[in-house]
């Protein structure tokens, strides 16, 4: 139990709690707009950025963020080129990111192990800079979503109606792309690039089962994610398991419980 009082564990807990608010909130909007896969794609591309960061000696998360931003704009461009096959653009960018990452790995042989920690997450190695970055990202995301939640709701529900209401639809889409890139680059060190999309999408999947209104679904995603993050970190800390993997497995367990609960509710009701 000593681990729970150690400094690195408390840092992990703070980082996890912060990401546990922002990732599922943004994920809710992405899932409702049928963009579930975008998180995975941006995460894979930011790994290439992280690798480049190590190679040129720049703060890796920052380079990862630049890559994620570039990727989200590229996806928007490709989506327009392949209008009816929009998911194609996601597949192209995702494989491009992985290819670039593996290319950069071979260039700088020495840092392979460090980059792997970004693949699967290394929440126990969060330093103060990481926490500050995550904290700033959290504040930015929360403030913008709080200010624009009703407009984002309309945009997500019915983009044409949002345009007819005179909302600047293009600016909102741009804002969401930037926020998604921010959140993903901030969270890859916590859960790992391979698992980021779980934190974005599974809480949203839970809210689709449980919530009876949009308002409720906003609270549901944060609650589900926080429960999984806290419980996951405690379990992983005490039994010495992989924290990222434990958090994601707990998220899936919550989703299964909700699905089973709904089936039973249907039968009895």
């Amino acid at each position: 139990m000593d681990i729970l009082t150690s400094e690195f564990f408390q840092r992990a807990l703070i980082g996890g709690l912060l990401i546990g608010v922002t990732a599922p909130l943004l994920g809710l909007f992405l899932v409702l707009r049928r963009l579930s896969m975008i998180g995975d794609t941006l995460a894979h591309v930011s790994i290439a950025g992280v690798a480049l960061g190590f190679l040129i000696g720049v703060y890796p998360i920052a380079v990862g963020l630049v890559f994620a931003l570039a990727a989200s704009f590229a996806i928007e461009k490709l989506r327009k080129a392949y209008k009816t096959y929009a998911e194609l653009s996601i597949a192209i960018i995702m494989s491009g990111g992985v290819a670039l990452a593996s290319f950069l790995f071979t260039l700088g042989k020495g840092f392979n192990m460090t980059v792997t920690s970004y693949m699967f997450g290394s929440i126990y190695t969060l330093n103060n800079t990481d926490l500050i970055v995550i904290g700033v990202v959290t504040v930015v995301v929360l403030v913008l979503i709080r200010l624009h939640v009703k407009e984002l709701f309309l945009l997500t529900f019915d983009e044409e109606a949002a345009a007819v209401n005179g909302l600047p639809v293009r600016y909102y889409n741009l804002m969401m792309s930037v926020l998604t890139a921010l959140v993903i680059s901030a969270s890859i060190k916590i859960v790992g690039a391979l698992l980021v999309s779980a934190l974005l999408t599974i809480p949203a999947a839970c809210s689709l089962v449980a919530a009876r209104s949009f308002r409720q679904s906003v609270f549901t995603v944060v609650l589900v994610a926080e429960v999984a993050v806290i419980a996951g970190l405690l379990i992983a800390g005490v039994w010495n398991l992989a924290p990222g993997g434990t958090i994601v497995l707990l998220l899936i367990a919550i989703l299964l419980l909700l699905l089973v609960g709904r089936v039973r509710f249907r039968i009895s009701g």
Binding site: L32, K150, E151, F157, D158, N165, G166, S213, S217
Partner: peptide, 28 residues
């Protein structure tokens, strides 16, 4: 005012009737 095609939204979307109606007000 704008009335969309009936199937322009996802039936699983978590929004109440009231939330949808209020969204008509969300403009500039």
């Amino acid at each position: 005012g704008y009335v969309p095609q009936k199937n322009s939204f996802n039936p699983l979307f978590p929004a109440t009737v009231r939330e949808v109606i209020m969204s008509g007000l969300y403009g500039r």
